[in-house]
Design a protein around this nucleic acid. Structure first.
Lengths: 232, 232
DNA sequence: AACCTTCATATTTTCGAAAATAAGGCTATA
DNA sequence: TATAGCCTTATTTTCGAAAATATGAAGGTT
């Protein structure tokens, strides 16, 4: 019943596993993505164990994992710090992600079956429920939106064959999330457009129009990153 | 004095840090790369703590890290297993690595300075000391060769500007190491050719001939991977 | 004053015992 | 015989105390 598949880097399936205590790794990553801890902040064990109510060992494992994913840096003997952010890194991450995602969506369109299609429709619907909300109410549920947004883009490429391609694009997506966060404060002009962009990406993908889907995704990501750079 | 730089994924600098006890992470990774543990083997804590003489917590952190790098898989509640190998994965890893490495070498050639050049020459010399040895003696020092070989290829691209590009190529290189191991047993015909290939790659790079260096590297990697596939 | 040494404090890192969980075997029941 | 439930064993996962290490301050020497 509890499927709990053997996982990849950045897989969030572990969270869904409801394995007793709330997943520290996920909560900590969310807090870093949400800028609860500013870049370069030292993450002391004394504070963190109280905040997340876990033992030192468990916390250390989570931080070590986040270091692999690039969210924190670690210096032997000095402990962990939140990784810095910069415009140049955002540009690089954006380029890598777009390159991966375009290849992934082509593979997905080539190999995806009925389950893949159905999942896209389902996940998109859940995303649109939040994106269709008026400005105020949508902001209240921003953290939920982040999750749905991630699930949507993951669903689109989930049928891609390359395991490493999927893995690498997921690492980059998580990094982008961190920068994407700054656009939360952006004027609602952008928010409305995203609604349609996601719809168009879904339609092109289900129509198996690889060229169109590929281009729409690139535009979608690049727009968001450019917004983020301005606000950085 | 103890520099111990803040590190990236797969960085082996931590090992050099001589921080008291021998780095479990490195030893464990080496053992997996060297097929001391076969793919799919369960890695039980009871055995591992005895083998590496470290506590459970420390071991768990190392295994968790290796999971991020893709050398082991982890299933909640079931523990850790050595990741499987397959021809199709080798092909995918090879393609990703070559794509990264070709871009990285171009950047390195464009931005590398005198220190970069000097380091390449130095590291290549240390590699050639082993590669010039007769068959028997070279095999004795195979694990050392693995290290020198890694250092050589890393030195070539070390001046590349993209931090993530470097990081991603390093992850892929480590994965290739695992498959490369099977060619250890290959007849010496290949071993001799590698000596010259490395020399040519170095020369082309120092001559700042990006096209040539790029092509030589691709050939070099693809040859090795094809050998590995035959022996898999 | 600048520099080195020493000591005290703060923080990280390691470790193994204890709790939690999964796997396998046994008996009772249909 | 097959199935379900329980008990026992094997293994993982968590936790905080203790060891190791770094930081910073005070005092002494050139």
């Amino acid at each position: 019943m509890t499927l709990e598949s053997s996982n990849l880097i950045g897989s969030r399936t572990s969270k869904a596993g409801a394995n007793g205590q709330r997943d520290v790794l996920t909560r900590l990553r969310t807090d870093i993505v949400s800028s609860v801890f500013e870049p370069e902040t030292r993450l002391k064990f004394a504070d963190m164990t109280k905040r997340y109510d876990v033992g030192i060992g468990t916390l250390r494992e989570a931080l070590s994992q986040l270091a692999s994913e690039g969210f924190v840096t670690v210096e032997a003997g000095k402990g962990f710090k939140v990784a810095p952010v910069s415009a140049s890194e955002l540009i690089e991450i954006t380029d890598h992600f777009i390159a991966f995602e375009k290849r992934a969506v082509r593979e997905a369109i080539a190999y995806g079956g009925e389950d893949w299609e159905t999942n896209i429709v389902a996940v998109h619907h859940r995303l649109s429920l939040i994106e269709g909300l008026p400005w105020e109410r949508r902001m209240e549920r921003h953290s939920e939106w982040v999750e749905r947004h991630r699930e949507f883009h993951e669903a689109i490429v989930s049928a891609c064959q390359g395991k490493w391609l999927f893995r690498l694009r997921s690492i980059m997506f998580d990094q982008l999330d961190r920068y994407r966060f700054v656009t939360k404060r952006a004027p609602d002009g952008l928010g409305g457009r995203k609604f349609e962009e996601h719809r168009d990406i879904m339609t092109a993908t289900l129509d198996r129009d690889a060229d169109l889907a590929s281009n729409l995704i690139e535009q979608h990501i690049r727009d968001t990153s450019e917004q983020a750079i301005k606000l950085l």
